[in-house]
């Protein structure tokens, strides 16, 4: 140990030591369900207590309109709002998919998040990965795709991210 160092974790107790300081929620997350089945999952997850996460379902992706114009419906009853507004001020979007119905929306969300440097994660639910097209649409943008048969993964992911 060099002389300038005043402490070293020479015992298990010292190794355990950490400065105690409250940890603020790290993420201002948006959770977006791409299809009806995913929306049902999102509603169940949204019913839990979260620090700052907001939950949305997708409207139709209109052809010819920019991705940011995609309409989203807040699961807490707020009026439809454009994707660009949902993304304002967030740094992580978690997209939920249980089928291919939302693959066009997936691409729109991915592109919009990519353009804004918003980290994107996808949770694709289903035993047989019925959401192949949604996965393919998300793949270029989603930093992580969690292919899962277990909707509890959504809760686990959001909890781990402190949203």
């Amino acid at each position: 140990m060099s002389l300038s160092q005043s402490a070293r974790a020479a015992s298990a107790a010292e190794s355990r030591f950490r400065i105690t300081r409250p940890i603020a929620p790290a993420r201002n997350a948006r959770v977006i369900a791409l299809d009806r089945a995913a929306e049902a999952v999102a509603r169940r997850v949204a019913a839990r207590s979260w620090a700052a996460a907001r939950f949305y379902a997708c409207g139709e992706a209109a052809e010819g309109r920019p991705p940011e114009a995609l309409a989203l419906f807040g699961l807490d009853g707020v009026p439809p709002v454009a994707l660009r507004e949902v993304l304002a001020g967030t740094d992580v979007v978690v997209v939920l998919a249980a089928g291919d119905a939302g693959s066009r929306q997936a691409a729109a969300i991915g592109a919009a998040c990519g353009a804004r440097a918003v980290t994107t994660a996808g949770v694709v639910l289903g035993d047989g990965f019925e959401a192949d097209e949604a996965v393919a649409a998300l793949r270029p943008y989603a930093r992580v795709l969690l292919l899962s048969a277990d909707e509890a993964d959504v809760v686990e992911l959001l909890t781990a991210l402190r949203v």
């Binding site: 994107t120 930093r143 992580v144 509890a152 993964d153 686990e156 991210l161």
Partner: peptide
């Protein structure tokens, strides 16, 4: 006390 990120999803899933 952790601050995990989406890239840690493998660890999150394994723990679960």
């Amino acid at each position: 006390k952790e601050r995990l990120v989406p890239a840690d999803s493998g660890i999150i899933k394994a723990r679960q």
